[in-house]
Design a protein around this nucleic acid. Sequence first.
DNA 1: CGCGATTTTGATCAATGTCAAAGGTGGTGG
DNA 2: CCACCACCTTTGACATTGATCAAAATCGCG
Lengths: 222, 222
Amino acid sequence: MCAPLSDADLSLIDLYRQGSRSFKKGVHIYHEGDVLDLSFSLASGWVLLYHLLEDGRRQGLEVLLPGSFFGFRANLQTPMTHAAVCLTDVTVCSFQITRLQEFLIDHPTAALHMLRQCARDRLLLHDHIVNLGRRTSRERVGHFLVQVCERLLDRHAGDADAVALPINQQVIADILGLSVVHTNRVLHGFKEEGFVATRRGKLLITDSVALGQAVGLTPEGV
Amino acid sequence: MCAPLSDADLSLIDLYRQGSRSFKKGVHIYHEGDVLDLSFSLASGWVLLYHLLEDGRRQGLEVLLPGSFFGFRANLQTPMTHAAVCLTDVTVCSFQITRLQEFLIDHPTAALHMLRQCARDRLLLHDHIVNLGRRTSRERVGHFLVQVCERLLDRHAGDADAVALPINQQVIADILGLSVVHTNRVLHGFKEEGFVATRRGKLLITDSVALGQAVGLTPEGV
DNA sequence: CGCGATTTTGATCAATGTCAAAGGTGGTGG
DNA sequence: CCACCACCTTTGACATTGATCAAAATCGCG
């Protein structure tokens, strides 16, 4: 529930958790510039990490799904360089970083676990970078959507054929470094091609594999 | 020499290291698609991690300086999703991941150390993403250059007022998601403004603080 | 039913990419 | 020591993608 730790670790980590907290959709878990001594594990819901430039431009950094760790830093004094906002109602476990570190020293398997998670996240960030740096708007949006699908299906393995995203076009645009207007045109195109749809205000991905192909994705996802 | 670990750890890690290896500038430590059971710690030199798209577009992912860990994965079976190429002559320590993991279980402080390093890298990746997603070409090049400067000065703390980079314009372009031609024009501009220069075929950053200002950097670097 | 937020659409513009070719530069071998 | 070569940088002309501005149309919600 709280994190993908081994059972043994799980029972112990309770001692160290400062507590479990809930947030409503749209609320910030922390802002840029905050000075915190906490880090978090996402228990349920979606979170967006983003950075704001001085002139208001916004860039989405990571879309977090349950199981993600975030807010962990090497340097506690330094203010947060990004903000975390809830894309849905959310519940997190929060840890005081100093205590978490003590815990990790005592429970090396948990530390290793975090390290492996971290390695996975690094790959996701790499993918994001490739997306932003070298792909056209169509490719970007397409890749982003199928990647989210895959991450979702990894956990709820194999249920829905249509995935609903709690994300509006403004958010997608900010994640992909595009303007809302252009994002809309791309998405609209996908809609006409039958890859996505809208229902109850939510974006639906109706055919992620066809979308992947249309956008030049090699079989196993890179 | 081998990594920023505590002395105690350092003496022990020798047991686990598969060996120290040297590579010439331009050589690959590994390619995309390689199946390895190794991960690395950069002892000296510069390394570029990059990803290649099917049609030849290339995207630089990370510029590694001494002390960086790379090649670590949660899943050993999976082929590498990026390549590592030497920007200079390089020496690395290589570890068999399975043995490294055993080591980290036995030496939790080392594990924690890697975790903190990982957290720092994540911030660097975030910065890269912001650069690619929301900054103009001028801002991108500028930010990249001063960031490299800062990372360099962090270690060799406070020597040169002019920093020489072992990186050509093609590489910069690939890191920043720009074309070589455009990168050249931006760099040329910086040259005329007196922020950078060329000597012995190397790019020199002659005034990183002025460059930072010119490019809209807030005092302490975002 | 009315309102604020989100999505759509059209018109125009600017930044950056692409293509092509000319200069430079350092290194190498004779 | 010199000539040559491969690689890198520089420049110009033109094409294209995606941004920007402005406004209309929808949609979910209270």
